[in-house]
Write a protein that binds this DNA or RNA. Structure first.
Lengths: 185, 185
DNA sequence: GCGGTAGCGGAATCGTCATTCCGCTTACGG
DNA sequence: CCGTAAGCGGAATGACGATTCCGCTACCGC
């Protein structure tokens, strides 16, 4: 008996995920499963053996993306200098940029509740620390930070190409407005 | 002969537009024409007599929204105190909020080129004036402003409900980061 | 009121997918 | 090497939804 998938099946699974990112990035939710399959070099049947449905495939992409983000959140929480919040926001920017092409798709489904909760908790804790350390103004709240995160997402996933330099500049300006010292980061 | 539409036809057209806003807001691009028709109290045939296709219907919604925004841009350009830029950004927020439910749909098509050009021109001119008047820092560029507009859009159209208070607070914080005097508006 | 045309409704048509099914292949433990 | 179950491909099925078509209706000008 096997423990996991046969080697070829595992390879195909990876190819399918990569093709799905590509195709969803190009066509959004309207992407056809046939297109994903052919782009991955397999038949549709193979896609369906691995992922129960189109929705399940999208959910898996979301799960993978959130998993990366959670790792970043842990890194930010490890900092003790009051700039963990700044780091987390930077991680958001990076993640949004990475998944930019198909991100709008992911955002339309409710994420894994546990992951979302963990991220919210990280934001709350890091905001508390930043206020305490004086790395943002006293009057900054969690709501301000989530609004910023949401706006950052909108900026990056919005219309055209947004370079890292663009969103970093945006983030810097906003953090300045939040009372962050110039020597942040 | 008639100059325009028959009175009942005109009424139906308005109902269709209203229903379309409603239904597109609920289901996004996947909204069914049948649903729009029944919500408007007419048959699908009637919808198609007025709008050549689903795309044409969406385009008309976009055209109407842009038309409002252009009027706001003109108002902002009429100011001479250097705060026209602030006013335009506020108008963006208002407009985004107004069309929030179905806005994502509109944003996925390329807007009327002329309207887009006019808005870009207004942003450019108002940014120039704001820098000259010192109502934002010297180093603020048009790119910074368009990024802010894009982010504002993302904030409002993103996930859940965003009240006017929320996006105004966001805008204030960002403008502060841009060096706007506290007594803005 | 009347005639005629602009309008109307909604069944029928045509395509486009998601998903299923099953006979054929291939990896791999022994 | 072999047997066999895991995998595979892709045609077939079923829904759904945009768009068309045409016989019927109700405004509008006179």
């Amino acid at each position: 008996m096997h423990r996991g998938l046969r080697r070829d099946a595992l390879r195909n699974q990876q190819r399918i995920l990569a093709a799905a990112r590509e195709v969803f990035g190009e066509y959004g939710a309207d992407a056809a499963m046939e297109e994903i399959a052919s782009r991955a070099g397999v038949g549709v049947g193979t896609v369906y053996r691995r992922f129960a449905s189109k929705d399940a495939l999208i959910d898996e992409l979301l799960r993978l993306a959130l998993s990366d983000l959670l790792a970043d959140a842990d890194l930010a929480l490890a900092r003790t200098d009051g700039f963990g919040l700044h780091e987390l926001l930077g991680a958001f920017g990076r993640s949004f940029g990475e998944h930019a092409r198909y991100a709008n798709l992911l955002l339309q489904r409710q994420p894994d509740a546990a992951a979302e909760l963990a991220i919210r908790a990280a934001i709350t804790e890091l905001t508390r620390r930043a206020v305490a350390a004086g790395t943002v103004s006293q009057d900054i709240t969690v709501a301000d930070v989530t609004a910023l995160a949401s706006a950052l997402r909108g900026l990056i996933h919005g219309g055209g190409e947004v370079t890292a330099r663009t969103w970093q500049r945006f983030l810097d300006l906003h953090l300045a407005g939040m009372g962050s010292p110039p020597a942040r980061r």
